[in-house]
Amino acid sequence: MTLEILGISVLWIFLFGYVIVASIDFGAGFFNAYSLLIGKNHILTNIIKRYLSPVWEVTNVFLVFFFVGIVGFFPQTAFYYGTILLVPVSISLVLLAIRGSYYAFESYGTRGHIGYTLTYGVAGLLIPASLSVVFAIAGGGYVDVIDGQPVLNYWTLYTSPFAWSIVVLSIAAVLYISAVFLTWYAHKANDIEATKLMRKYALVWAAPLMISALGIMYEMKSINSESYSHMVNLWWMFAISAVLFIVTVVLIAMRKKYGLAVGLLIAQFAVAFFAYGIAQYPYLLYPYLTIYDSFTSTQMAIALVIAFILGLCLLLPSLYLLMKLFLFNKKYVTGKEDNHA
């Protein structure tokens, strides 16, 4: 367990945390906007509002952890990714800015301005799409180095089926994860109508998720045969993930044990996400950057790991407190107690 592997796995866990928490946040925002469009917003809005209000700031911080962390552990990534990602990441930042400000302005200020809710919902889908492009770029084949400076050729990226299948997967995953979670959350708040509606969305988005996931594996072959061969001999991890997926869908379909379904969902994505990560080993940016040649000095790595562990000892209890007081607190979830500031 070298420091490099410890560093990249810690960061990968944070990125996974972001994928899950952000999916729920973005998906909830999209469903809220979608239900407004089709006139069913009375069903979903208060559930989604009650879930989102104390939690939305936390989502953003996972992302900041990841990119500050990766610059700390692998400083070379700042040079490579910084230079090539200017446009895609700036676009994601603008979308994040719109969403982040919307939430505070909406819940504390203006009431239900429809235009803003729609942009909020749509941005909720565009952000994962624009951020997932980075996964495609990391896969390799879109960046070439011209006299020492990495250059991203947009044309090949935007016309590559592999990149598009990753974007489709990210959108399907966001909607599927949030639908399953909100089905369970609405169930806990014994809001029958919202549970029924969210369950329907969950089932609708289950199939596209699987199709786009298979699409990626197929496309990967032509883009990056090395990672593809890694993925093939990790087939058993993807099999486990598929089994977990099927059990979740069955549970949702039979309206039983939604809580377990959410647990299995997170396990399914964890297994698939880590399998994908291991398949990329040792490349951070295929073929230019590996985790070994871009790793920081051992003194800095040790300092970062210590700071990280101390930080977690501070954060996990406080996150638990947040969850206990709100998400899993019987009274809060059912709306009996809303001592809003």
Partner: peptide, 28 residues
């Protein structure tokens, strides 16, 4: 990144810590 990444990393922790308790403070 090689020299001053530590406080950048800890700044994120400090803000995360503040954001969580601000959420709790506002809603209790």
């Amino acid at each position: 990144g090689q020299t001053i990444a530590l406080p950048l990393f800890m700044e994120t922790f400090a803000f995360f810590f503040e954001a969580i308790f601000l959420g709790i403070y506002l809603y209790t």
